[in-house]
Structures are given as C-alpha cells and as structure tokens.
Amino acid sequence: MRSFRRRPLTAGAAVIAISVAAGQSAMPQDDKGFGIGQRVSEAELQLWNIDVGIDGAGLPPGEGSVQAGKAIYETKCVACHGAEGLGQPMDRLAGGQGTLKSAKPVKTIGSYWPYATTVFDYVRRAMPLDRPQSLSPDEVYALTAYLLHLNGIVESNAIMNAQTLPMVRMPNRAAFRSDPRPDAANSACQTDCR
C-alpha cells in the first residue's frame, strides 16, 4: 500500500482504477479499446494453428498411403491401440459397425466418427500420447489413410492428402443431431407421488 501511494498516479490510471472499482468494463475508450496485446500474423502462429476444418481448411501440404501408415502404426501406435486398431490397452480405433443400437455399442472411427478430417486433426495434435506433435504431415496423412482403411472406409491403395481427405464420407455421419433437451419431463408433485 505504501509503495503504491509513492508512485505518481497519472490521470489515465486514475480513471481506469475508478472504472475497475465500479466493476464496469467501460473505459476511456477510443476505437482501439484498451490497446492491450501485440498484433500477430498467421505466419507467426503457424506452429500453434494446427486445427483442421471439416472442409479441409488447415490441412498442410503432403500425403500418405495406407501402406506407409501401416508401417508407422506398427512402430508408434500398436503398443497402445493393439494390432489393426482393435484396442487394448487404450481406445479401440477400428470395427464396431452395426453395434451402436446394441446394449454394448463399440464406438470407433469407423462406427461412430462423423468426419474423416477429425482423424488427421486429432492424431496430429495429440498422438502418440507420449510424444504428441512429433509426426510429420506425411506421417499423419499415412496414419489417417491406414485407420480409415482398417475401418473399411477407403481402399488399400488410397492416398490421403488435402484434396482427398475432406472428400471421404464417414458411414455414421447422418446419425448426428443437435441438442433437443430438455427431453425428460418430471413434475413437482408433493404428496402421493409414484
């Protein structure tokens, strides 16, 4: 408190202090708002901007084949996701088509995921679990091709790249709906209920 008082207060700082104290976000505004932060270009954000849209926006140059993907999978993924993506100890990545209405649905890329671009986005950002973001774009394309092939969605000679991947149509896509809740009705009954 003492050291604060010793510091000379400028008129501007006083205005900010008052508006903050009053809990307002209004401010001695010019068009530039608070003037906080540095301008940044998309080029500078390249290492962070890793998301992929369903239209393929954000997919990098490069490509990969099912065969190349199989080889990478068997060195970098199989320990956690099992041979041919059948799971154990971690998530199962393939199979399960036709089980979603059963008592034991098996949700995988092939049986559940609505967009193929999500496979590229997720593997690039988060896998392998112990070394995320260590894969090259070619490797991620190849792994995506292999995982789609394991699920019977692309042929064994498929090549995935920024043009082909967004064209892949996922089998469960049409099952997705928006949120219809509230969906369960109860009453505030007080006596002789049930």
Partner: peptide, 12 residues
C-alpha cells in the same frame, strides 16, 4: 470461425 470444427472431443 464460421462453423464448428468437429474436434475429436465433440464427436468421438
């Protein structure tokens, strides 16, 4: 963006 991304944690 103009539309959702459909990331793994909003699909799978």
């Amino acid at each position: 963006g103009a539309q959702p991304w459909h990331t793994r944690d909003e699909t799978s």
